[in-house]
Amino acid sequence: MASVLTFTDSGIYCPAGNFHIDPWRPVPRALITHGHSDHARPGHTTYLATDAALPVIRRRLGEISADGIPYGERRRIGAATVSFHPAGHVPGSAQIRVEVAGEVWVVSGDYKTEADGLAEPFEPVPCHAFISECTFGLPVFRWQPQPMVMDDIARWWAANAAEGKTSILGAYSFGKAQRLMAGLPALGPILTHGAVEEMTSILRAQGYRLPDTIRVTPEVTAKTHPGAIVIAPPAALGSAWAGRFGPSGEAFASGWMAVRGIRRRRSLGTGFALSDHADWDGLNTAIRATGATRVFVTHGYTAPFRHWLETQGYDAGIVETRFTGDDAEEAEA
């Protein structure tokens, strides 16, 4: 019997349905897990993604021929049946379930197991084979619960404000930025970089509950908005753009910030370990919950993680990808 999914030069492929999942080369039919640029690539003939993911994908890719699907709805493509299930990664993100002749494979896309209050919470999907990301597939990555991290960030924000400093928080503009604004207490005005505001307004229009934000324009300064937090893409940290706020505290919110050496590489003293990917325990729990016996790992520390899964009794393999970690221009973490 042919494999439900195979791994090709263009990405993950389903022969029975003649479609690809998150392919990196142009293909006739692409099923997309979510709107991050290492998953939603331009140039495919047709796209299929969750209704919740499509607005961001359309904004990023421009004119595309795309179809939306609600979470959980089954759709027949050729001899395959596909459905999309919440991945908890960012708003609209999905795991994709593919069933062919009774055999079920699931492609996780990017996921995290902790509910963040914004993205549709992760749901384990029973399957025979599970293709799991493992961006943080080493036991040194163990996240603190979100409320604790938000508390830390809030304390940092308040301390900056008390010293008359603006807080500039680096966060990926789609997903992390909105998770932060939704999760932080209302200590002051929330200012946004244009790239963040663009994503925020799309999600707000979709009905995600997000607080009011003010787009940074030339008139917006520390004087007009004292005690503000500015949420900006990581690249804006330390830039002339950030300089306009005068005295400021800068920090970066990312899973990588769990490691001191990586934090220091950015010469940013302050880092908050907040990730939209599963940590070590999250990966292990999620994989166990699928009931799968075959697991393929991709994106991240694939070699040690595969070896670890083998010692846990799984039939494990690696799916190579064009994109890993910091690779994509906005590879979220």
Binding site: L138, P139, V140, F141, R142, A258, V259, R260, G261, Y301, P304, H307, W308, T311
Partner: peptide
């Protein structure tokens, strides 16, 4: 965790004290 996995982690973190604190 097995020793080899500890060593893999140490290779990424680069600092023994921190690797231990994290695992």
């Amino acid at each position: 965790i097995p020793d080899w996995l500890f060593e893999e982690s140490y290779a990424i973190v680069g600092d023994l004290a921190e690797t231990i604190a994290l695992v």
